[in-house]
Amino acid sequence: MTAAPTPRPEASPWAFAGMVGMAGAFFLLAATPTILDAPWWVTALLLAAWAVALYFACSWFVRRPRAVVVLPLVLAVCWFAVVLLGARFLDWA
């Protein structure tokens, strides 16, 4: 006699909302050179941070769907801090 298959967990809408936020965060980070006069390596570092966040978002999609929503918010706050500090201290404006 075989055991009954275990049911799959349902996909949470929080994870999908987080992935939409990750797409929005990508465009925000990729548009940094058009918004201010930042060096190319700043955009490269921001996009590398986005790639790391995307890795975690994909791995947490089913296990921690509410954490996926937090990732784009953290990226947006980090971008805002980088822009403010660069404009204030490094004359990127």
Rank of each mutant, 00 (worst) to 15 (best):
M1C: 03
T2K: 15
T2C: 12
A3C: 10
A3R: 11
A4F: 05
A4Y: 05
P5R: 10
P7D: 12
P9F: 00
P9T: 04
A11D: 11
A11M: 14
A11I: 14
S12K: 02
S12N: 07
W14E: 15
A15T: 03
A15K: 02
A15H: 01
A17S: 09
G18C: 01
M19Q: 10
G21E: 02
M22L: 12
M22G: 02
A23N: 11
A23D: 12
G24A: 13
A25K: 04
F27D: 15
F27H: 10
F27M: 13
L28D: 14
L28A: 15
L28I: 15
A30N: 09
A31P: 00
P33N: 02
P33D: 04
P33G: 11
I35N: 12
D37Q: 11
A38K: 04
A38P: 12
P39K: 08
P39H: 06
W41M: 07
T43G: 11
L45R: 02
L45E: 15
L46N: 08
L47I: 05
L47H: 05
L47R: 06
L47S: 08
A49M: 07
W50P: 00
W50L: 01
V52E: 01
V52Q: 06
V52Y: 04
L54Q: 08
F56T: 01
A57W: 04
C58W: 15
S59H: 13
S59V: 09
W60G: 02
F61R: 06
F61S: 03
F61Y: 15
V62S: 07
R63V: 02
P65W: 04
P65K: 01
R66H: 09
R66C: 02
R66I: 04
A67N: 06
V68Y: 01
V68L: 10
L71G: 00
L71R: 06
L71S: 01
L71Y: 03
P72E: 04
P72A: 08
L73F: 08
L73W: 07
V74D: 05
V77S: 04
V77E: 00
C78A: 15
W79K: 03
W79H: 11
F80I: 14
F80G: 11
F80C: 14
A81V: 14
A81F: 13
A81D: 02
V82N: 01
V82Y: 01
V82R: 10
V82I: 10
V82H: 03
V83S: 07
L84P: 03
L84E: 12
L84R: 12
L85C: 09
G86C: 04
F89N: 06
F89H: 09
L90C: 11
W92N: 05
W92R: 05
A93K: 14
